[in-house]
Computed example of a mutant assay.
Amino acid sequence: MLTPIDVQRLTTELPTSHAWGPVVHLDVTGSTNAEAAERARPWSPVLADLQTAGRGRLGRAWQEVPRAGLAMSVLVPIPPTPGWLPLATGVAVRAALSDAGVAVGLKWPNDVLATDDGDRKLCGILCQMLPDGAGVVVGIGINVHHERDQLPVPTATSLRLLGADVDRTDLAAGVLRHLRARHEDLVAGGERAKGVHAAYRVACTTIGKEVDVHRPDGSVEQVVATGVDDDGRLVVTGAEGSATVAAGDVQHIRPAGVPPRP
């Protein structure tokens, strides 16, 4: 039987004396991002065992299996370079998973891929600015205990399928602590922010790949990803030269005969 989040232990790991807000745990919610936005309490994590109306980028709908995944959101102050927040969150998730012995890569701008399982998607990240500009809700969804038939698409995987026995409470604490540290680096700027940038670029599997860029207007452009600039935008080179991508969807292009990637 899958166990619930241990709220008392997580509260101990994230004490209010260190400027964490109270831990909110819900059995069921529509969206942890919406809950965190409504509560509007900085650094107060919202977790749910079942999320019924979760949304990914570009409005994609998905629904969690009860207690199988880690679905959580937290409101954070806007850093000086907001475009780096989803990327820094990926760095934080990667660090927490590394602590658990799991190797992952980062797909720009907000997916975490399992390098030992064909680059299948292990985690998605969704950052949403509050309407009043008072902060950004960072939403994180990690597939933890799912079996293969419980995943929504064949391009997804879980920690269980990777052979990793991970406690969701420990994982939540690790991700949140790493996120707080990377956020502080972005706010500090200078060499500390550059350290986050460097860590992301090393881990980003998009750099160097041919990609299809699906832009918000519906157009698709095939380009080569060559880097990530200091504003967090993807740098690409195509038929018309170099450009940057700040919004839209990026899909890695696979060689013939290779199974689809996320």
Rank of each mutant, 00 (worst) to 15 (best):
S219K: 07
V235E: 14
A247H: 14
A95D: 14
C127S: 11
G141F: 06
G101A: 12
D119N: 14
T32Q: 05
R41Y: 01
L87C: 08
A96T: 07
R201I: 08
P262N: 06
P82I: 11
Q63L: 01
V137L: 09
M129R: 15
W108D: 03
G139Q: 00
E13I: 06
R57H: 13
S98M: 04
D27K: 02
A156G: 10
A96W: 01
E210G: 12
L106Q: 08
G190A: 13
L70S: 05
T3L: 14
L151T: 10
R41V: 15
L161R: 05
G232D: 12
R55H: 14
V245K: 05
R120F: 03
L113M: 12
L58P: 00
V76M: 13
V137R: 00
G54S: 11
E191R: 14
T81G: 03
W62H: 09
G21R: 09
E147L: 14
R60G: 06
A40Y: 10
K209P: 01
P216L: 09
L97Y: 05
L50C: 02
A193D: 04
V104Q: 08
I140T: 10
A36Y: 02
C123S: 14
V250K: 09
L162D: 04
G54D: 06
M72R: 02
A61C: 07
M129G: 08
G124T: 07
Q150V: 01
L106M: 11
G69W: 02
Q251L: 11
H178Q: 15
L234Y: 11
A36V: 11
K107A: 04
L126W: 09
V76E: 01
G118W: 00
G241N: 11
W108A: 07
R9A: 15
I125L: 15
H145A: 12
D212Q: 14
A36Q: 10
P86H: 01
E35F: 07
G105P: 01
A40E: 12
E210S: 14
V24F: 07
V175Y: 04
Q128Y: 04
I5S: 02
G69I: 04
D111G: 08
E13A: 15
L162K: 12
V223A: 02
A198E: 14
A156V: 03
G227A: 09
A188K: 09
A193W: 02
G124W: 09
A203C: 03
R67M: 10
